[in-house]
Design a protein around this nucleic acid. Sequence first.
RNA 1: GGAGGCGUAGUGUAGCGGCCUAACACGCUGCCCUGUCAAGGCAGAGAUCGCGGGUUCGAAUCCCGUCGCUUCCGCCA
Length: 607
Amino acid sequence: MQETKPTVKRSYTTCGELNAGNIGEQVTLKGWVNRRRDHGGLIFLDMRDRYGITQVVINPENARDAHAVAEGVRGEYVLAVTGKVGERPEGTENPNMATGEIELVVSDIEVLNPSKTPPFYVNQESDVDESLRLTYRYLDLRQPRMQRNLRLRHRAIKIIRDYLDDRDFLEIETPIMVKSTPEGARDYIVPSRVFPGDVYALPQSPQQLKQLLMVSGTDRYYQIARCFRDEDLRADRQPEFTQLDLEMSFVDREDVLDLTEGLFVKMFSELAEKPLKDSTFPRLSYQESLLKYGTDKPDTRFGLEISDVSEIVASSEFGVFANTVKSGGVVRGFSVPGKGDIPRSQVDALTSAAQGFGAKGLVWIGLEEGENGLSARSPIAKFLSDDEVNNLATATGASAGDLMLFVADKEAPTAEVLGRLRNHVAHEYELIDEGSHAFCWILDFPLFEWDEDGNRWDAAHHPFTSPMDEDVQFLDSDPARVRAKSYDLVLDGFELGSGSIRIHDRDIQNRMFGLLGYSDEQVEERFGHLLRAFEYGAPPHGGIAPGIDRTVMLLAGEHNIREVIAFPKNQSGQDLLMGAPSPIDETQLQELHLQLDLPPEEDHEDE
RNA sequence: GGAGGCGUAGUGUAGCGGCCUAACACGCUGCCCUGUCAAGGCAGAGAUCGCGGGUUCGAAUCCCGUCGCUUCCGCCA
């Protein structure tokens, strides 16, 4: 891969561009010493930069001064080496190197900067403790894999910009210091010096601002937007992260889905190493996804689809099944091909995994050829009739030699347990098709979800999400039944982003707030600015906000978004390179009218 | 806030009650070496085994606590 663009002119040569066509040219390479091989006479240096590695050879017989310099050179020294591009002697070509046909025969070396011995290898892949990598992130980023990730991220964002520019979108920046709206995630707070006691908040997303841009007539907006949420971290979650935030006017759901799908197909066809499983993204309703995959972010690269077998076992002699169904619960399960004869130890491991996911128990049934169709090898075999065994097999798509796994409980925990068990089994038995990427859309989310703790309805997406037209009639009578015009984009089991068509009707918006239990004062305080804007001619609008970090992570084949963020934070939210967060001066506190009220220091010596 | 995993020279690992006066590889330092590309050869330096306590005649090893990192749950409109 030639990364250097032909139009780029430099006064020196990069370490990735020389080949047999340059033999005889006088050039200067600038870069880092990747490796040094000192033969006493000849010294070989591998020079590395972002573009590649080029071998440099120093011969004491025709470059005495350069040789003396090269003797003192070590790894990661920054050099300017000048010489003539030479054909490598017969038999010493290196077919593993892009520049392996040639070498630079050095006449002069200038040490631009020496380097201490790095705390970990820059010149080879190794599994170094991540906090060390983060502390010396600049060295970590020097490695080819990380350079590749940074470049991939750049390319992905470039494709986004070109694609949206072609479609009349304007890239518009929104403020980083905004108003705190205490709901959803915890805000990061910036105290005001000028207004004692008042604060700005960092945006959790530019949600309200992009809607205001729609009211402004901007029509099509996007932004590579930094978002901030003060919540605990995960492998795919950082306290600050980047979204492709976009919003369009005069659109319905189909328009947003089409536009987004086109963008991701383009991005993945140009950048991904693996093909898309489906170039048209399959669509699942939320209900369907929960039933078949036990989650609203299914990994559709593998089967193991879940089936509801409640009816089959409703009158089973196996009490747990029958009683669960009788009391309004469900029995669901899936089959694992070819695993009908796994040893008891593995079955036990699956059971304890399921229990770890919250299951009360796990019923397993190994299927064998029997006299009347299939027969069951299972602790509960004696409770199951031949008919029941065969019907369960049919329902889960299982046949002889397969393993069936069932969970019985109330619907929500059953779905969750099976969803997580499905992922677990797929990993355990390597059933995931790692050779492709699988996108899908999840549609028809409920508009509300019941908040057990607060004993009230909560917006499933956010309070500006429009209900489905045909469900508006249930807003007051049966909120649980109201579906939203919202959608999630899912890739390989990761939620890449969600979006919705927004409410532009003031009456429906007011009813939403009423249902969510906001008082007029709260509505005015939190959303007054937005609602006032909606009174001046708000166009129907909607959008979506896919996460850039997760997208690039999956493009890069990484398992952690920190690998595609130049300067990420560790799991405690610390920046180990700069040392943030850090204490602040008394002077700064005074200027901000702040006093500290710190928790008591744990002092072991006092005890 | 909770649960699991990990913590041994600069890095990655081994050792998992006494053969440990802690091993190996790479890296590092010095010397030798003119065709290597994970160069090679020789010599050497480098570790209070995360920290604290306990059990034991004896602890890197077992137990408890604690700290750090990480994965997951809670949390993430």
